[in-house]
Computed example of a mutant assay.
Amino acid sequence: MLARTFPCNKCGICCQKVHLAPETRFLDRGDGTCRHYDATSKGCNIYTQRPDICRVDRQYELIYSQRYSWDEFVAVNVEICLNLQTGDLIKV
């Protein structure tokens, strides 16, 4: 299987909004931000061991590959990412 990559711009906004989704709330350090988020690097302190919910490619394989093509799945995730960046939050 070919490796799939998500066009992440590494802004860190998704890591600062983990309280918004039931699937990621367990990562909340109490202020909506992931307990593994490093504000200085805008990255993850446990990136290579991060949970499956934080891996776009893994979520696609586990849950969404029967419903969407990879390109469709990326498009939905990019839209959500842009909404998080602009503060235009939507209910998914």
Rank of each mutant, 00 (worst) to 15 (best):
G12K: 10
T86K: 04
I46M: 02
I90R: 08
Q49E: 15
E72V: 04
H19P: 00
S65W: 03
T48S: 14
Y68R: 03
T40V: 15
R50E: 10
Q66T: 09
L2P: 14
K10M: 04
S69R: 15
Y68K: 04
W70R: 03
Q49Y: 12
P22S: 15
R67T: 13
Y47M: 04
L20G: 06
Y64P: 01
G32V: 15
I80W: 01
K10A: 02
R29E: 11
D88M: 09
I53W: 08
K42G: 05
H36Q: 13
D71G: 07
N45E: 12
E23K: 09
D38T: 11
Y37Q: 12
V74C: 07
V56S: 00
G87C: 09
E79L: 05
R25F: 04
L82R: 13
K42E: 13
N9S: 09
C14G: 08
D52Q: 08
A75L: 07
G43M: 10
I53S: 02
L89W: 05
F73I: 01
T86E: 03
C8P: 02
P7G: 04
C54I: 11
N83F: 02
F6H: 00
I90T: 04
L89F: 11
P51L: 03
A21D: 13
Q59S: 03
Y64L: 08
C81L: 10
N45D: 09
V78T: 11
A75E: 10
R58F: 05
T48V: 10
G32N: 14
N83C: 13
A39R: 07
V18T: 14
T40S: 11
D57H: 05
V92G: 10
C44Q: 13
C44P: 08
E23L: 15
G30L: 12
Y68D: 13
F26W: 12
L2Y: 07
F26N: 06
Q66C: 11
C8D: 07
A3N: 08
K91R: 09
G12V: 12
E23S: 14
I46T: 05
K10S: 10
E79A: 11
C15T: 03
E79S: 12
R50F: 04
W70T: 06
M1W: 14
D52R: 08
Y60M: 14
A75I: 01
I13G: 00
C34S: 14
G12D: 14
E23D: 12
Y60E: 07
M1A: 05
C44Y: 05
T24S: 12
V78D: 00
C44F: 04
C11K: 15
T40Q: 07
A21K: 12
D71I: 09
F26V: 04
F26C: 08
L27N: 01
I80H: 05
C44T: 08
Q85D: 11
R50A: 03
S69H: 08
L82S: 06
Q16M: 15
R55Y: 02
C34W: 02
Y68T: 08
T86P: 03
R67Y: 14
R58Y: 09
Q85T: 09
E61A: 11
H19A: 06
P22F: 13
F6Y: 13
R55I: 11
V78G: 01
W70M: 09
N9R: 06
Q85N: 02
D38F: 14
M1Y: 13
R55V: 05
P7I: 02
I53R: 06
V18G: 00
T86V: 06
H36I: 01
Y60I: 03
S65C: 07
